[in-house]
């Protein structure tokens, strides 16, 4: 009990200290009077055809920042994401190779039919969110997060053998994930490689034409803004996030005995 009292006192002190700092004006005016200067320039440039050597060709400022102005940040965050999924897969490295012998019948037929319809709806919403990421709120991360709800529900409702029957194997998902991440990194350097091949100036993470470089991804397709590289990066990120999460879910939802067998480990250590 003494431990609890000490912790509670400490945390009350933390909350009071934060409140006092806010009261002294640590956050400035609340609500803030205006947005920052850098945000103003992003908002001004993102779809400004008058300054087309600095624009991102996307009416959606958040996607433009995520994949163009701060693209390198997002690329490295994708690397962190890749690493976290990889770490989870490494902990379960043996589970994927063991066949799952337990066959579950799943839930009742009413739930199964409803789930089939709902899955279609979820995947449609996810694909629409990802493909229109440069026009409306949405993008690769959002679409991937929405789409990865579907396999989780499918495994719970139909049982794990559904993925085995439909031939969605571990290796296929892993290949899909690696391929989409490879394509993602390729599309960031595509213009640089093209520039080297044709002896023109190109940059890493180049989207639209710059002052010194005339190379550019298409900014419009059939009169609709395409956002250049934003569209491709959104699609590849969508595939990478969906397949990565699906991989971890299939392993986490394996039957008890398969996981226990893996956790027992080998003769020497774990």
């Amino acid at each position: 009990m003494l431990r609890d009292i000490i912790f509670v006192t400490l945390l009350i002190i933390i909350a009071l200290a934060l409140s006092y700092l806010t009261y002294l004006g640590g956050l400035g005016d609340l609500p803030p009077q205006d947005i920052r200067l850098i945000a103003r320039s992003y908002l001004n440039l993102t779809y400004n055809q008058g300054v087309n050597w600095l624009w991102a060709a996307s009416p959606e400022a958040v996607t433009a920042i995520v994949w163009d102005y701060r693209g390198l940040d997002t690329l490295f965050e994708t690397v962190v994401f890749y690493g976290a999924i990889l770490a989870a897969l490494t902990v379960f490295r043996g589970v994927s190779k063991l066949p799952d012998r337990i066959v579950s019948v799943g839930l009742s037929v009413v739930v199964k039919r409803t789930m089939a319809i709902v899955t279609l709806a979820i995947l449609t919403v996810a694909a629409s969110t990802a493909l229109h990421g440069h026009l409306t709120p949405g993008g690769g991360f959002q679409g991937g997060a929405i789409a990865s709800v579907a396999p989780l529900l499918l495994i719970v409702v139909f049982g794990k053998q559904l993925f085995v029957e439909k031939k969605v194997s571990y290796n296929k998902l892993l290949t899909l994930r690696n391929a989409s991440l490879g394509l993602l990194s390729l599309s960031t350097v595509a213009l640089l490689i093209y520039g080297l091949a044709t002896n023109e100036i190109g940059y890493i993470f180049q989207n639209q034409a710059k002052a010194l470089s005339t190379l550019s991804y298409p900014s419009h397709m059939l009169d609709v803004p395409l956002g250049g590289t934003l569209f491709f990066l959104n699609v590849f990120e969508f595939l990478a996030v969906t397949s990565g999460f699906t991989l971890v879910f299939t392993l986490l939802l394996s039957s008890e005995e398969v996981i226990l067998k893996e956790f027992e480990g080998e003769e020497y250590g774990y």
Binding site: I35, I65, T74, E77, V80, F81, F141, G144
Partner: peptide, 14 residues
């Protein structure tokens, strides 16, 4: 301000 939103977006998925 779109900048904090762009940061939080990736932070949630990661």
């Amino acid at each position: 301000d779109p900048l904090p939103q762009a940061f939080v977006l990736t932070a949630i998925v990661i």
